[in-house]
Design a protein around this nucleic acid. Structure first.
Length: 847
RNA sequence: GCCGGAGUGGCGGAAUGGCAGACGCGAUCGACUCAAAAUCGAUUGUCCGAAAGGACGUGUGGGUUCGAGUCCCACCUCCGGUACCA
């Protein structure tokens, strides 16, 4: 008979956990009292006693409705924010929208609706849902990057970079997306396809705006040391993307018509093995080189064909090598040898100098090319033990157990030694030098699209590219009739807007009609949050220096390179301009894993999309939020399972009922009294100890890389124990223990289920849980008098014994030897070794 | 190819070198109910055994250790990133 709840309370039908009512109640409190607003130094309400914590989730692109990825990232971010607040920090958690961008513009092309209208609609629904989820945001700082009072400062910063020589315009081969009709940055081309629409990109020669991010390559690498905690793989990805490689530049001279061709090589030690020389089809000296030679037309034809290829086709490694031999030769600077020249599309203009020395014996690509064109292959690196190298492939090795051969005075040296010697020689003769090369290229920022931040430049036939003066900012985006891109920016059709006067000479000028890549907008938004209503500057340096860096940044790993690299670059450039003190924007980074459904990425075409709003209205925000944190470690992905949501709902209901069905207030007063707690025994003590265990476990797992799944599991255990012990707790002490357990569970679950946590706390203790410090476990209640020790024989579990917690090794062994169970396993043998791990186990080793 | 990450019950996942499988889902049984749902409780790695108990068990093969899911070596599979980068 289960009599625990069988009192007359049941006559009035037990109330049920009404998540929506509870959530509306607390959201109203937070909105009315502006609970999550936080002051900067000098503002009223600023509390200098508390340390600051800037907790930031990557700003969303507002398109349609938030999806589960947003639910997860804000659930994680908010849990961290709440945890920090209750640990005594002044937490800033702002919100904004990355509201320029292609989807809104494409929508405008389809429907004719102005992107501003559809964007505002999306922002409204994002805002509504974030409020509905009860995220603890300082809404007074809300911003959107497409608002003139925001992009005014994006333009202002662009002009500072322009003045510093970090923004420039030049003609170069760029990646063009034929569908979106715009150029793309290298970072936005994935496997030769447009990151946004998946169309194959094609090369195109255009005059475009760039940021000189390559100037910062070394600092971007070195300053990984300044970060507190970033996922190692993100750092590695950025390292690889920057792609620093050390080597040498060597100059090969073509006597006729007299052109020096520098090449970059990471293997100057193999210079003697160079048997031919290859130029990229785009090489600027090619025309001059072939002028008047017998096969100039053939070469031109090859080049034209190469340029027509999509980036994907050209990048295909498996394709057979192609190329054309030029009727020219170059001289190898180390041995004076004349070697034939080729043009081939496997050499890229964007990397190095667009020309290579080919060492077929030790480079797979050169090897394939040499085979195809029947060129000599000269081995210059050999295993130190004199063994043969495989014939059908290039001999490529990082090993130092090799020696240089067939290379004059380099013979017998290791590659490292040969590199040093050859670079010294090249430098002495002025035919080369030590060189460092990067994979990273300058950031192409102009886009031939409408819905972006206008570039504040006027083109003047007299003065060139002239910056718009600061006092004329913002250069506002004009309204236009037709959004369709036509190979140039739709802005070009707004002739009233385009035609202007030159700020420098007052003559006629034309506005720059390209807009900025939206990644520019999001490269500094974390600074605007700090001083969002400043009308004189993008932000006040003193305020920014107070809050920066972001203490905890949270977002998807898909931004590991793009956004995070750009934002790091911007921060350094702004620091160099004296606008801010920090060198790195994000001290700690947490990347959350992607939620799938039925094991697959969610997509409309698969019909497996989870709409968070649907779950929030059915189960409540607390259930949805707690569920995404409970699925597994938040930095890993997880599969959305409806039954799992039910499980979390069940748990939250149990917690609510535990609080709702507590005995009357009078019986349970003093539940938090430590002296009383320490004096208890039996089931009362057991439940109190479990409560303190949960506090300790939750706190440790919170600190340990945000292991939210086990934090929540600990609270579940506490609630389960409370139910299990409830029947044995019919005394006043029992009522107090239950009250303490329920209040503690509410307090610990609050970062994930803030509404329920507040409600439970209010029901049990009264007051506001977010104003109560994060609980600390009582060591004395954590400690046990009697502990169970595991006894092993030869590493196999054979017995358990109860020992006093303070028993020493001798006493433990005495108890072990008293065990009759063990005799069978020992079989009369004397242990040769007895290992005692206090508090853990005993292992008897017998032979 | 290169660089990361991960392989543990029917499923998601727990385990500072020390009781493998916490917690949740699912499943089975029981209580309540006319019945069902909800709720509460119990059981739930595999094999042998009536039971007591025993053997096996963390992708594979070896190693270190009193003791290995955890550390080392070699390999396999999956996932992510990246790639004619000279």
């Amino acid at each position: 008979m289960n009599a625990a709840t069988g009192d007359d309370r049941e006559q009035e039908r037990p109330a049920r956990y009404d998540a929506r009512a509870i959530e509306a109640k607390w959201q109203a409190v937070w909105a009315a009292e502006k609970t999550w607003e936080v002051a900067s130094p000098g503002e009223p309400g600023f509390d200098p006693e508390k340390p600051k914590a800037y907790v930031l989730v990557m700003l969303p692109y507002p398109s349609g409705e938030p999806h589960v990825g947003h639910l997860k990232v804000y659930s994680v971010g908010d849990a961290i924010a709440h945890y920090r607040r209750r640990n005594g920090y002044r937490v800033l958690q702002p919100m904004g929208y990355d509201s320029f961008g292609l989807p809104a513009e494409n929508h405008a092309i389809r429907t004719g609706e102005h992107p501003r209208i559809s964007t505002e609609r999306s922002i409204a629904s994002f805002r509504r849902q974030f409020l509905d989820w009860g995220v603890s945001i300082d809404w007074s700082r809300e911003l959107s990057t497409s608002a003139p009072d925001y992009y005014r400062w994006t333009q202002w910063i662009f002009l500072r970079l322009f003045e510093a020589g970090l923004a420039y315009r030049t003609e170069a081969a760029v990646q063009w997306c034929p569908k979106d009709q715009t150029v793309l940055a290298n970072e936005q081309v994935i496997d030769g396809r447009c990151e946004r629409c998946g169309t194959e990109v094609v090369p195109k020669k255009l005059e475009q705006w760039y940021f000189r991010i390559t100037d910062y390559a070394d600092r971007l690498l070195a300053d990984f040391d300044r970060l507190e905690s970033w996922p190692e793989h993100v750092v590695t990805m950025q390292r690889n993307w920057i792609g620093r490689s050390e080597g040498a530049e060597a100059v090969f001279r073509c006597e006729e018509p007299g052109i020096d061709f520098p090449v970059f090589t990471t293997r100057p030690d193999t210079l003697y093995g160079a048997t031919f020389f290859v130029l990229a089809p785009e090489h600027p000296e090619l025309d001059r080189l072939i002028e008047g030679t017998g096969n100039a037309d053939e070469v031109r034809e090859y080049v034209a064909a190469a340029l027509r290829q999509t980036t994907g086709e050209r990048g295909d490694e498996d394709r057979e090598k192609t190329g054309v031999r030029l009727e020219r030769t170059v001289v190898n600077p180390v041995n004076g040898e004349s070697i034939p020249m080729f043009v081939a599309d496997y050499v890229l203009m964007e990397y190095g100098t667009g020309a290579i020395m080919a060492v077929p014996a030790h480079d797979q690509r050169d090897f394939e090319f040499a085979r195809k064109f029947d060129l000599p292959i000269r081995q210059v690196v050999a295993p130190a033990d004199g063994s043969e190298v495989p014939a059908g492939e290039a001999f490529v090795t990082q090993s130092e157990d090799v020696r240089i051969v067939n290379s004059g005075d380099l013979d017998g040296l290791t590659p490292a030694g040969a590199k040093r010697k050859i670079i010294d020689e090249l430098e002495a003769e002025g035919r080369g030098r030590l060189a460092v090369n990067y994979r990273l290229r300058d950031w192409l920022l102009s886009r031939q699209r409408y819905w972006g931040c206008p570039i504040p430049i006027v083109h003047c036939p007299e003065c060139g590219s002239v910056p718009v003066p600061d006092d004329q900012l913002p250069v506002e985006l004009p309204d236009i009739e037709d959004y369709r891109p036509k190979g140039k920016s739709p802005l070009a059709t707004a002739s009233d807007w385009v035609e202007t006067t030159c700020p420098r000479c007052d003559g006629p000028g034309r506005r720059e009609t390209d807009t900025m890549d939206t990644f520019v907008d999001s490269s500094w938004y974390f600074l605007r949050y700090l001083d969002p209503r400043n009308t004189a500057l993008p932000f006040d340096r003193r305020i920014a220096d107070h809050w920066m860096p972001v203490d905890q940044y949270i977002g998807g790993v898909e931004h590991a390179i793009l956004h995070l690299l750009y934002a790091r670059f911007f921060t350094k450039a702004l620091a160099d301009a004296g606008l801010i003190g920090v060198q790195e924007p994000f001290a700690n980074l947490f990347t959350q894993g992607m939620i799938t459904r039925d094991g697959a990425k969610m997509s409309k075409s698969k019909g497996n999309v989870v709409d968070p709003a649907e779950y929030v209205s059915r189960y409540g925000a607390d259930t949805a939020r707690t569920y995404v944190c409970f699925m597994g470690p938040p930095d890993r992905g997880g599969d959305w399972v409806d039954e799992g949501v039910d499980g979390v709902q069940r748990f939250l209901s149990r917690l609510w009922r535990l609080a709702a069905e507590l005995p009357s207030d009078a019986d349970r007063a003093g539940a938090f009294d430590r002296d009383w707690q320490r004096g208890t025994s039996g089931p009362v003590r057991e439940l109190l100890a479990k409560s303190h265990w949960a506090i300790d476990k939750a706190t440790r797992d919170f600190e340990r890389d945000f292991q939210f799944n086990t934090v929540i599991a600990a609270v579940m255990e506490l609630v389960n124990d409370a139910y299990r012990l409830r029947g044995e707790l019919g005394t006043d002490d029992g009522a107090r223990a239950l009250a303490f357990a329920a209040a503690t569970a509410g307090s610990l679950i609050f970062p994930f289920a803030p509404h329920l946590g507040s409600e439970v706390w209010e029901m049990v203790e009264g007051g506001r849980v977010w104003e109560v410090p994060w609980p600390a476990a009582d060591e004395e209640l954590l400690a046990k008098d009697v502990i169970t020790l595991v006894v092993q024989v030869n590493g196999k579990l054979r017995d358990r014994i109860e020992v006093p917690a303070d028993a020493d090794e001798a006493r433990i062994l005495e108890l072990v030897h008293a065990s009759e169970r063990l005799d069978a396993y020992l079989d009369g043998r004397e242990p040769v070794k007895e290992i005692v791990v206090p508090g853990r186990l005993v292992n008897l080793v017998v032979r």
